[in-house]
Deep mutational scan, measured.
Amino acid sequence: KELVLVLYDYQEKSPREVTVKKGDILTLLNSTNKDWWKVEVDDRQGFIPAAYLKKL
């Protein structure tokens, strides 16, 4: 499984997104879309802008 580091706080703006904090380490589920990556946060799955994440 691939992990990503959150570079900036992000507040979800729709039900398909998730809220994260800078410094969080998340499981990356899908990065095929270059703009929005799907991650897992506390048993929730959702999207975050790829620019907010860095692969570890």
Rank of each mutant, 00 (worst) to 15 (best):
D24E: 12
K1N: 11
F47T: 03
V18Y: 04
L56I: 14
V41D: 07
P15T: 10
Y10D: 01
Q45M: 10
K54L: 15
A50H: 04
D9N: 09
L26F: 04
D9T: 06
P49M: 04
L53R: 00
K34L: 11
V41E: 02
F47A: 03
E12D: 05
L3R: 11
T32K: 13
I48V: 15
L29T: 06
D42F: 15
E2P: 12
I48K: 00
Q11L: 14
K54A: 11
A50Y: 03
K22M: 08
A50W: 02
Y8F: 12
K34V: 12
S31R: 08
G46N: 02
T27E: 10
R44P: 00
L28P: 00
K22Y: 05
A51P: 09
K1I: 13
L7G: 01
L28Y: 02
K21Q: 11
I25Q: 04
L53H: 00
N33A: 09
Y8S: 09
V18E: 02
T32P: 04
R44F: 06
L3S: 07
K34Y: 09
Y10F: 06
K21I: 07
L5F: 07
V18H: 03
L26S: 01
T27M: 12
S31Y: 09
K21P: 01
D43N: 14
L29I: 14
K13G: 08
V4H: 01
I48R: 01
L56Q: 05
N30K: 07
K34E: 12
T32R: 12
V4G: 04
K34N: 12
E2K: 09
K22E: 07
E2G: 11
E2A: 13
V41S: 11
E2T: 13
Y52E: 01
L56E: 03
D24R: 13
K13T: 12
T27R: 14
T19C: 05
G23V: 01
W37F: 05
V4D: 00
N30Q: 11
A51R: 15
P49K: 05
Q45N: 09
K1R: 13
R16K: 13
E2I: 13
S14I: 04
G46E: 06
L26I: 13
L53T: 06
G46I: 11
K1T: 11
V18N: 02
D43V: 09
N33R: 11
A51M: 15
S14P: 06
V6E: 00
D42N: 14
V20F: 04
D9W: 04
L56K: 03
E40G: 08
V6S: 02
E12W: 09
N30L: 10
E17I: 03
N30W: 08
V39N: 00
N30V: 08
K22W: 03
D24P: 00
Q45R: 11
K13L: 10
I25N: 02
K34G: 11
D9A: 07
L56F: 09
S31L: 04
S31N: 08
I25S: 02
V18I: 14
L56C: 10
V39W: 01
R16C: 15
A50L: 02
K55P: 08
P15V: 09
D42M: 14
R16G: 15
Y52S: 07
L3A: 06
V39F: 01
L5C: 07
W37Q: 01
K34Q: 12
D9L: 02
T19I: 03
L28A: 03
P49R: 05
Q45A: 12
V18R: 02
Q45D: 08
V41R: 12
F47L: 08
D35K: 14
T32G: 10
D35M: 15
Q11N: 14
L53C: 15
D43T: 12
V6K: 00
V18L: 15
K21H: 12
L26N: 01
T19E: 03
V18M: 12
E17K: 05
L5R: 07
T27H: 13
V39P: 00
G23H: 06
K34W: 09
L56V: 11
L56T: 06
A50D: 01
A50N: 03
K34C: 11
K54P: 00
T27L: 14
L26E: 00
Q11S: 12
Y52C: 09
Y52D: 02
K55Y: 08
N33M: 10
I25T: 06
L5T: 06
F47P: 00
Y52W: 07
E12V: 07
W36E: 06
G46Y: 10
Y8N: 11
K55D: 03
K21T: 10
S14D: 14
D9I: 02
W36R: 04
L53Y: 01
E40V: 11
V6G: 00
K54D: 05
D24Q: 15
Y8V: 09
V39T: 01
V41I: 13
Y8G: 07
E40A: 10
E12M: 15
K13W: 05
P49D: 02
V6Y: 01
